[in-house]
């Protein structure tokens, strides 16, 4: 058990390290050098050279990489070539917004998918089950940002119930924060919920055919209680895999939703940094997002062993 966790942790760390090399190399091989890109084509060669020296861009790539990673490991992401501000604190701040968005989006998706997927499975031979399947098929085809645009139109512009965008920190005004989070979270969660519904349906259907569910019925459990007590935990294993993959999609999907709702998250920071040609900031945000995806995969692997006792050995 502990050995498996240790092995998983090692894979996680190696993967993050490999990802950091990829991200760094990608930014390092770009045509022209980062100082030139940041300063623009009109900058004098002298200014470019001074900037290169200031940020250590004239050193060998390996030194630059080690320096960068050394900083990142201790939470120091360096100083932006463009704004000349330290990247770390802002990154952390923005990450908070994105995590709230992703977390609440996932919650909405689960609240949609768990009951609907189960109903679709249990009633798969009846019209209501087919209707749920059809709904999820349709929901999958709607881009999250379109859902966002439509929701804003309906609930913010027409009905005026909720704000159309913007962010209030939860510590500042919890009520305003919650109201501001509803539409982004629903836009993000609606589409993911539709995707997830299909997976929940499939795995509940699989579990319904299992012998142990028949044993549970033979004990005297009625169909729904049997499914709830004996089926859900087993059905959860494949769903959790998809959930993990979806969290990764949500993390990137949040980039788009942040743009629609003007939220100061990691995504809008990334897009702003790209627009400002602030490559070190881009590099740092990409690394954080990729590490986030890897971390989620790691968590999913651990969750398996909790859900399925058969995997606890070795």
């Amino acid at each position: 058990m502990t050995l498996a966790i240790a092995r998983r942790t090692a894979i996680l760390l190696l993967s993050v390290l490999a990802a950091s090399v990829v991200v760094f190399a990608f930014m390092a091989v770009l045509p022209g050098d980062p100082a030139q890109v940041a300063l623009g084509v009109n900058a004098t060669p002298e200014l470019v050279e001074r900037t290169r020296q200031e940020f250590g861009l004239d050193r060998p790539l390996l030194t630059q990489y080690l320096d960068w990673m050394g900083g990142v490991a201790s939470g120091d992401f360096g100083t932006s070539y463009v704004t000349r501000e330290t990247i770390g604190p802002q990154l952390l701040d923005r990450l908070g917004v994105t995590l709230w968005l992703v977390g609440s989006g996932m919650l909405v998706a689960l609240l949609i998918a768990m009951p609907l997927g189960t109903i679709a499975a249990v009633r798969h031979r009846r019209p209501s089950g087919a209707a749920v399947s059809g709904f999820s098929q349709l929901g999958m085809a709607v881009p999250a940002f379109l859902a966002g645009i439509i929701l804003v139109q309906a609930f913010a512009v027409q009905l005026g119930w909720l704000p159309s965008g913007g962010w209030t920190p939860p510590a500042h005004d919890p009520a305003a924060w919650l109201r501001g989070l509803v539409l982004p979270a629903v836009s993000l969660g609606l589409v993911q919920g539709a995707v997830l519904t299909r997976y929940v349906r499939t795995s509940v259907l699989d579990v319904m055919r299992e012998d142990y569910l028949r044993t549970a019925r033979a004990k005297g459990l009625r169909p729904y209680p049997a499914l709830l007590r004996h089926g859900l935990r087993n059905a959860a294993v494949p769903v959790v895999t998809v959930l993990g993959l979806q969290l990764a999609t949500l993390l990137v999907g949040a980039v788009v939703i942040e743009r629609v709702f003007v939220l100061p998250g990691l995504g809008s920071m990334l897009l702003d940094a790209v627009a400002a040609r602030d490559l070190l900031t881009v590099q740092s945000i990409v690394l954080v997002l990729v590490a986030g995806v890897l971390l989620v995969n790691f968590a999913v692997d651990l969750l398996y062993t909790v859900l399925d006792p058969r995997l606890r050995r070795s």
Binding site: A19, F26, V286, V290, V293
Partner: peptide, 14 residues
């Protein structure tokens, strides 16, 4: 671990 959107933004940046 590199979703399409992130890769495209990286490519776009460079």
């Amino acid at each position: 671990a590199f979703p399409a959107l992130l890769l495209a933004i990286m490519f776009g940046a460079v």
